[in-house]
Structures are given as structure tokens and as C-alpha cells.
């Protein structure tokens, strides 16, 4: 693959006391790909993406995004630079309307027609008819969808999805997969996911983390065939 590299992390490290949550990870994201990050519970996946998006400060190592060193950039500035993060635990504004939720994302990137663009962003995920509801009154599946819609509305170059299908029904998962397929190659997607069907179906490349280190990187077929991955994770 002669793809352009959007993000590269080198020797990225973060320890919490004695726990080596992320321990010298080298990682590359090609522009326009869907890249899945998998690994057993506690492998450091969420810590790793938190380092990428700036929620957790980097201990050592470096991150370059679109040719720029962002290792020390604060989280809000990374969002402005084009890295959007959707929370593992749904973190919408429950007491604000659905429209206000999405408008906060749309106005953050500087929209000229705030109301129209907000409605368009809701329409994209099928929530336009619920615009005036309080976000906290949405069903769980719709809340997850709103969370993803807020990430999309930022029009990021990189969209990080932290376990987006958790708690969704099968029909909702299918709709979600279509949504993610539709955003590449305009955006690049980094996906943390436990549902292997979703991973194998969506991802072009997969990185496996174990004990804070990269165990393997490759296409879904390569990962499936990798004996180290099988013993560590797939229970092979």
C-alpha cells in the first residue's frame, strides 16, 4: 500500500504507576482507511487512543498528525486540527435538546448556516425528526448514534470510535456499519471494537494490542492466521 500516512506514533508510552498501559507503541494510520484496534480487556486500547486525542498526556514518544507534531498539543486543539473522539460511555448533553447537541459540534468547526447544517447532520443518521427532544430521552441506540453524529459533524480527518456498537441491537449494528463505510475515504476511521464480526467486516487493517504493546498489525486475514494473536486473544 502506497497510501499517505495520516498519523504516526513512535515509541508511545504511558505508565500508570507500575502498570504499563501503553508501552513503546509504534503505530501508523493510512489516510482513508478503516483501522481496527483490538485486544483483550486491559490491553491499553482506550489509553492508547486517549494519548492520540490528548485526553491523557503523553509520557514519552511522539505523535505526528498530517505532518505536524502534536505530541504536546492540548486535546481541544487536536480536535480543531482534525481528530474527533467519540466516547466509550455515551457522553452526550442529556439535558440539552438533540439539536443543541449537534449544533455544538457543527459550530465548533465554524459553520456558516448553523441551523441548516445541524439538521443535515442529524438527517444523516436518521435523527432529524427527534431534533427537539431532550437528548437524555432518546433510546440508548439513538444516543450512541447521536454521539457518532457529533463526531461526524466536526468533519474530522480522523474519527476515533471507542466501542461504538456496544449495547446496540443487530439491526442497529448493520446501519452503523453502513454509516462508517460511507465516511471513508473522506475521513480516516480508527475503531476500538470487541464485536469481531464488525471488525472483520469493516476494517481494512487491524492492530492487536496486548499488555500495552503491539502484538501484530495486518489485514483481517493475516490477523486471523497469526498464531500469536490466536493464542493471546482469539482463544485459538
Amino acid at each position: 500500500m502506497a497510501a499517505v500516512t495520516l498519523l504516526e506514533a513512535r515509541a508511545l508510552t504511558r505508565h500508570f504507576g507500575g502498570l504499563r498501559a501503553v508501552d513503546g507503541v509504534d503505530f501508523d494510520l493510512a489516510q482513508g482507511e478503516i483501522h481496527a484496534l483490538i485486544g483483550p480487556n486491559g490491553a491499553g486500547k482506550t489509553t492508547f487512543v486517549s494519548l492520540l486525542c490528548g485526553r491523557v498526556p503523553v509520557q514519552s514518544g511522539s505523535i505526528r498528525f498530517a505532518g505536524q507534531d502534536i505530541t504536546r498539543l492540548p486535546a481541544h486543539a487536536r480536535v480543531r486540527a482534525g481528530i474527533a473522539y467519540t466516547f466509550q460511555i455515551t457522553a452526550i448533553y442529556a439535558r440539552l435538546s438533540v439539536l443543541d447537541n449537534i449544533a455544538l459540534a457543527v459550530q465548533s468547526r465554524g459553520a456558516s448556516h448553523l441551523a441548516a447544517e445541524s439538521m443535515a447532520a442529524l438527517d444523516r443518521v436518521g435523527l432529524a425528526s427527534r431534533a427537539d427532544m431532550l437528548a437524555g430521552e432518546l433510546s440508548y441506540g439513538h444516543q450512541r448514534l447521536l454521539e457518532v453524529a457529533m463526531g461526524l459533524a466536526l468533519r474530522p480527518r480522523l474519527l476515533i470510535l471507542d466501542e461504538p456498537t456496544q449495547g446496540l441491537a443487530n439491526s442497529e449494528i448493520d446501519a452503523f456499519k453502513d454509516l462508517v463505510r460511507g465516511v471513508v475515504p473522506d475521513m480516516t476511521v480508527l475503531l476500538i471494537e470487541h464485536n469481531m464480526d464488525v471488525v472483520m467486516d469493516l476494517a481494512q487493517r487491524i492492530t492487536v494490542l496486548n499488555f500495552g504493546q503491539v502484538l501484530a498489525t495486518g489485514t483481517p486475514d493475516e490477523i486471523r492466521a497469526n498464531p500469536a494473536v490466536q493464542s493471546a486473544y482469539l482463544g485459538g
Partner: peptide
């Protein structure tokens, strides 16, 4: 309502 969420929207 949610400072951390707002930060991750770029504010």
C-alpha cells in the same frame, strides 16, 4: 453540562 465532552468538541 459536561466540560470533558465540550473539550472533545474542540472548545
Amino acid at each position: 453540562e459536561n466540560e470533558e465532552r465540550s473539550r472533545m468538541l474542540g472548545y
